[in-house]
């Protein structure tokens, strides 16, 4: 009797959340059929004609599609690799200093950019990298001609990677700082006894101690190879740099919502979603195997 009351309470608690999930997550999933149709808004899903895999075939035929896929992977991989390294380096450097006030201050400052949106930071970045902006002024001291970063297919990508790492490295270092404090101090003392210098301790004690965390974070980053950073690119790019910076997500937005080619947009989104799920599931499995950690 008691238990029955508990069961009812649990179901009631879950009811509102489930209703929202049904309406805004599960029902839209049926919209995926648009990917296999020539969807015409006036006719609706039931009235539109079926085209099988035509949208997918078309997608593979557009010359842009290869470029967009390559852009996504290249930008995402660079961001993950550089971001991870910079976060680790920052955590290691911070771990070496003992002045608590300075440590706290630095942490406070470098975590901050992560909480600002790209809608805001875009203006800041455009200012800094503008033709007459500080970066070009700096390059000028070395006799380098000013670069129009925002319109250069050579420089736009490195600029994306740099500013993304800048925004996220502080926040990314938190997890490494946390696991640094978990390294047994006895190991450092023992290393000192053996005459290890600072660098040797870093190499033989600190880095091996960090390895499980590095491994875990890298694994969990696996699904992000498809996630090149919509918000950043969307707020910074322009048609001049589509060639090197147009990614799957920005393409879906433009084709699907701006140009209203619903079927094509949905097809591209579906393909990305399926590959994404495979990556997430693999990452979860891999993380479980390597470190006993499960995302869910």
């Amino acid at each position: 009797m008691k238990n029955k009351k508990d069961q009812t309470a649990f179901h009631l608690m879950l009811a509102p959340g489930m209703i929202f999930l049904i309406i805004f997550s599960f029902i839209p999933m049926f919209g995926i059929v648009m990917a296999f149709q020539n969807y015409v808004p006036a006719k609706g899903i039931s009235g539109s004609s079926w085209v099988g895999l035509d949208n997918f075939k078309f997608m593979l035929q557009i010359p842009d599609s290869k470029q967009i896929f390559a852009n996504t992977i290249i930008i995402a991989l660079w961001k993950i690799v550089v971001g991870t390294i910079v976060s680790i380096v920052f955590a290691l450097l911070l771990n070496e200093i003992r002045v608590r006030f300075a440590k706290r201050f630095m942490q406070t400052v470098v975590y901050l950019p992560n909480f600002l949106s790209w809608a805001i930071l875009a203006t800041v970045v455009m200012n800094i990298f503008s033709y007459e902006g500080p970066v070009n002024a700096f390059l000028g001291w070395f006799g380098i001609d000013p670069v129009l970063f925002m319109a250069s297919n050579t420089w736009f990508r490195p600029m994306l990677i740099l500013t993304d790492v800048w925004k996220g490295f502080g926040y990314g270092s938190i997890i490494y700082l946390a696991s640094l404090t978990a390294i047994d101090p006895g190991l450092y003392e023992a290393a000192s006894m053996d005459g290890a210098n600072r660098f040797k301790k870093l190499w033989y004690v600190t880095l091996p101690g960090l390895m499980p965390t590095i491994l875990l974070v890298t694994t969990l980053n696996l699904p992000n190879v498809l996630n090149a950073g919509f918000d950043q690119i969307f707020n910074l790019y322009n048609p001049l740099v589509y060639q090197t910076a147009d990614i799957i997500d920005t393409y879906v937005y433009r084709v699907g919502l701006v140009e209203r080619q619903y079927s094509l947009g949905t097809a591209v989104g579906l393909l990305r979603s399926v590959v994404g799920i495979i990556l997430i599931l693999s990452a979860n499995k891999l993380a479980q195997k390597l470190t006993d950690y499960r995302i869910f």
Binding site: F10, I23, F24, V252, Y253, T266, S273
Partner: peptide, 25 residues
Amino acid sequence: GQKIYMNLVIFAMLFSGGLIPTFMV
């Protein structure tokens, strides 16, 4: 019911209809 609900929630987390179908809803 825990298992069923949990699977539903994880499914909703992993898979989405995407921008356009959600917009239409």
